[in-house]
Design a protein around this nucleic acid. Structure first.
Lengths: 233, 233
DNA sequence: CTGCAAAGAGGCGGC
DNA sequence: GCCGCCTTTTTGCAG
């Protein structure tokens, strides 16, 4: 990887046209020669999580008199960089890529809830990621009347889109011969609920929102483990 | 800004828990002392547009024996970095932040189309961002029969979601007393169309897809300017 | 300030 | 490869 601290300007042409005016930036070049994938990032030195400009993996690099040109012909993208002043420059051949382990993303949220659907009522888990023609339902359950209950889990607030999505799921389940004559209903599970989504849910009596935070789930797992230990004794 | 090329590992705790195993990374520290906003980025040296870990603006920095600890108490986030080997390190006080000008994002796509709705048929523009109870319609037009035509513009491919969204718009317009007895229809405009979305559109005879690329719009603007010049002569 | 949708979104998994 | 969906999304813009 080559790192350059510089006063520079840039122009990107590809999916849009963008012009970056002269300023202090940090340019990261993941050139193939130094073990990189050919991607490029231009970060502002002062602020901003996302890069101001970038190029995808597989870009070619060309050094010009005034700076650099990066191109990705297959994707029709090009990034020109004009360097006015170089403050510092370093490069290093990278040999070890780290691995990132995440806990608490939506997948785990859903995993934990799958183990504890009884939290949401008298339910039994039937399937995870149950495929309908209009997309997969996170959790499909059955209630005491053996009616299907679709559960959509979100790590963030439920928005109106999620509610409409649920309606399509319910419609698809209603059409499915596997659930003939069983009236489906839906439960939206999340730490919070957008107001517009709440109004929407209230309009349908087969929909329900249940507030569950990740901390609550973690808490419950501890309790379950405790109970298990009591049993074991 | 401080830039460090190093072999390091990290742990983030906040919105999730994340562990970054030992590897070659580029650490960007936008410390206040050197003109930064207090944000931190850890980029892999080999690959990946998004950073592996990061901290938002306003984080505090503490140098420890083995590395760094960044904290954002108000947001309850913390990033610990353990540095095993430093390959290179640089810092620079940033004084000039660049400005980024973008052309061709969805807003501009819609802007240009608003000037040329006749492209899509015998239409007259009535309103932009017309508010319905279920969200704003990009462009609302009238056809020769004075019937409302909702236009949804996407810079990327139309997906089934966009089609369902359009159906909700049409329903809302149909309910609106302002358009009493006028039957609405919808046009989805984009450079391309997903297959599932296409099947969906074919099921409704009040929906239509029109392919328009950004290049076509740019082209058309040039032509319009030419015609204007001819008139001026 | 809050809510909401776009982003040059990227990235991952499923089919 | 297309498609669907999550992201520590971030960011910008409206009400």
């Amino acid at each position: 990887m080559i790192v350059i601290l510089a006063r520079a300007s840039a122009r990107y042409q590809g999916r849009i046209d963008a012009e970056l005016s002269l300023g202090d930036v940090c340019i990261l070049i993941r050139d193939i020669e130094s073990g990189g994938d050919g991607s490029v990032l231009i970060h502002d030195m002062q602020m901003g999580i996302p890069p101001r400009n970038w190029m995808p993996a597989g870009s070619s690099m060309q050094v010009t008199e005034g700076g650099y040109v990066f191109e990705h012909e297959k994707r029709g993208e090009k990034l020109e960089v004009w360097v006015e002043t170089i403050y510092a420059s370093q490069s290093h051949y990278s040999q070890l890529t780290s691995k990132l382990a995440k806990l608490g993303a939506e997948r785990e949220f859903s995993d934990r809830l799958a183990l504890q659907v009884q939290l949401l009522g008298d339910l039994v888990l039937v399937a995870r990621e149950w495929r309908t023609p209009c997309g997969p339902v996170d959790l499909l359950c059955q209630d005491v009347n053996e009616c299907p209950v679709a559960i959509e889990v979100k790590r963030r607030a439920i928005d109106p889109n999620a509610v409409w999505q649920m309606r399509r799921y319910l419609h698809a389940i209603g059409e499915d011969p596997a659930w003939k004559d069983q009236v489906p209903r839906g439960i939206l599970v999340a730490p919070s609920l957008q107001k517009a989504a709440q109004r929407l849910i209230e309009q349908f009596d087969d929909l329900e929102f249940i507030r569950v935070t990740f901390d609550q789930l973690k808490e419950l797992e501890v309790q379950m483990n405790d109970q298990q230990e009591l049993k074991d004794d």
